[in-house]
Amino acid sequence: MYQVKLYNKISKQGLDKLDPAKYTYSEDLTDYDAVLVRSAKLHDVEFPKDLKCIARAGAGVNNIPIDKCSEQGIVVFNTPGANANAVKELVICALLLASRKIVQGVNWVKGLKGTPDIGPAAEKGKATYAGPEISGKRLGVIGLGAIGVKVANAAIGLDMDVWGYDPYLSVDGALQLSRSVRHVTDLNELLANCDYITIHVPLTPDTRNTINAESIEKMKDGVRVINLARGELVDVEAMAKALESGKVAAYVSDFASDCILAQENAITLPHLGASTPESEDNCAEMAVYEITEYLEKGTIRNSVNFPNLKVPYEGGYRICMIHRNIPNMIASITAAVRCNIENMGNRSRGDYAYTIVDTAEPPTEANLEDLRAIDGMISVRAL
C-alpha cells in the first residue's frame, strides 16, 4: 500500500483517481512514499527515507527544495499546461483592465454611494476613465510555452497583431501556435515595437528581472505590461518609476508589492492566475497520474529534476535506478544485475540519469545491494 502525504487542499477529483486498493492519503502521515502539494513551502521539511516523489499541482516549484530532492533521489513533478486555460483567460481580462481603466472607474462609482441622481452623476465622470481598444494593437508575448501559446492565439482571435519571443520554442509549441503570430528571435525587437507586453516564462536565475529598468527603457512610451507568471520576473522598483514617469501607462500583476500598490495606474490581483475549480481539478488529476505512473511503473514524465523516461511495462520484474550521469554506469549496472535483461531504458539530464531494467527473473536482495553499492548510484527500487 502506497502512502501519499497531502499538503494544502487537493482537489477531490484528483484524489478520486487514487485506487483505494493501492493507496492511502492524508495530511497527517509521517512515513510516506509520495507528496501532493500546491503552495506549501517544503524547504524546511525533513523528508522520510521512503519518500520517492513529490508532485506539485501547478507549474512553479519554487516552494520545493529541488537540489535537496535530487541528491536524495526524490523525483519532483509539476503539471505544465494543466492551468494554462485559466491563466490565458485572466491575461485577456488583464489586457482589458490595462486599457479601459475599468477598476478605477468601478472604484470611483462606488464612492458616489448616496449621491442624488447617482446615474447621471456617475456618467459625468466617464471621460476620466476612457481608454483604448485592444483590437489592432500589437501584443508582445514573452515565452511561448503552454500558456504563452494560448494567450497568443486568443489575442489573434481578438484582432490583435501578436509578436512572440521564445528562444526555446518546442516543436509542440510551434505546431500549436497560430501562423498569424510573428515569431521574433530578438527580445529587443519585441520590446521596442509592442503596445502591450505579457510575460510567461518560468522563474530561473536567468529570467529573474527580465523586465527591468534597461528593458523598460527600450519599450514604447505608454506601453502596458502584464505579469501573471512570477513576481520576480519584473523589477518592481523599476516598474514603479516607469509608472510614475508615464513611460508605462499601466501595469497588471498577480503579485503584490508595496511600491506597486502605491501607483495609480497599477492593478494588483491576489494571485488569481490558476484560481478556478477547473484548473485545480486539472492540476490535481495530472499530479496524481504522474505519481501513480512513477510508483507503479517507474515512468517519469514532467519531472523538473530528472529526465523523463517511459519503458513499456507488462508487469514483470523491473528495477528503477536514479544515479549520477557519469561514465561506465550502464556497464556497472548490467554487470551487477547478473540475470537476463529483457528490456532497458536510460536517459540523462545534466548531472543526473535514470535507468530502468526489466529482468526475466526477480532480482535478489543481493543484486539490489550490489546495485546500491555502485559509485554514483543514488537510489534503487524494485517493482
Results as ranks from 00 to 15, higher is better:
179 R>E: 15
179 R>I: 10
179 R>V: 09
180 S>D: 14
180 S>K: 12
180 S>H: 11
181 V>W: 00
181 V>H: 03
184 V>I: 10
185 T>N: 11
185 T>C: 06
186 D>A: 13
186 D>M: 09
187 L>W: 01
187 L>T: 02
187 L>S: 02
188 N>G: 14
188 N>H: 10
189 E>Q: 07
189 E>M: 06
190 L>N: 00
190 L>E: 00
190 L>T: 00
193 N>Y: 02
194 C>D: 00
194 C>R: 00
196 Y>T: 01
197 I>Y: 00
197 I>A: 02
197 I>K: 02
197 I>G: 01
200 H>K: 04
200 H>F: 14
201 V>A: 04
202 P>V: 08
202 P>D: 11
203 L>F: 07
203 L>E: 11
203 L>S: 08
203 L>R: 09
204 T>Q: 10
204 T>G: 11
204 T>W: 08
205 P>S: 11
205 P>N: 10
205 P>G: 10
206 D>S: 09
206 D>P: 00
208 R>E: 15
210 T>D: 12
211 I>N: 03
211 I>S: 05
212 N>I: 05
213 A>Q: 13
213 A>P: 12
213 A>W: 05
214 E>R: 08
215 S>A: 10
216 I>A: 06
216 I>M: 12
217 E>A: 15
220 K>N: 02
221 D>K: 07
221 D>H: 10
222 G>N: 01
222 G>H: 02
223 V>L: 03
224 R>F: 07
225 V>C: 04
225 V>W: 00
226 I>S: 00
226 I>E: 00
226 I>C: 04
227 N>Q: 07
227 N>F: 04
227 N>G: 07
228 L>D: 00
228 L>S: 05
229 A>I: 08
229 A>L: 11
230 R>D: 02
230 R>M: 03
230 R>I: 01
231 G>A: 01
231 G>L: 00
232 E>S: 14
233 L>R: 09
234 V>P: 05
235 D>Q: 08
235 D>I: 04
236 V>N: 13
237 E>M: 13
237 E>T: 14
238 A>S: 15
239 M>P: 09
239 M>Y: 05
241 K>C: 12
242 A>I: 11
242 A>H: 06
242 A>Y: 04
243 L>H: 03
243 L>N: 02
245 S>D: 12
248 V>A: 07
249 A>D: 07
250 A>R: 07
250 A>C: 15
251 Y>V: 04
251 Y>L: 06
252 V>P: 00
253 S>E: 04
254 D>I: 08
254 D>N: 10
255 F>S: 05
255 F>H: 06
256 A>P: 04
256 A>C: 13
258 D>V: 14
258 D>N: 12
259 C>Q: 14
259 C>T: 15
261 L>D: 13
262 A>W: 07
262 A>E: 15
263 Q>N: 08
263 Q>L: 08
264 E>C: 07
266 A>S: 08
266 A>K: 02
267 I>M: 09
267 I>A: 06
268 T>H: 04
269 L>P: 03
269 L>A: 09
269 L>Y: 10
270 P>G: 11
270 P>M: 11
270 P>I: 12
271 H>A: 15
271 H>M: 12
271 H>N: 14
272 L>Y: 12
274 A>I: 11
274 A>C: 13
276 T>M: 03
276 T>E: 06
277 P>Y: 09
278 E>R: 09
278 E>N: 12
279 S>W: 01
279 S>P: 02
280 E>Q: 15
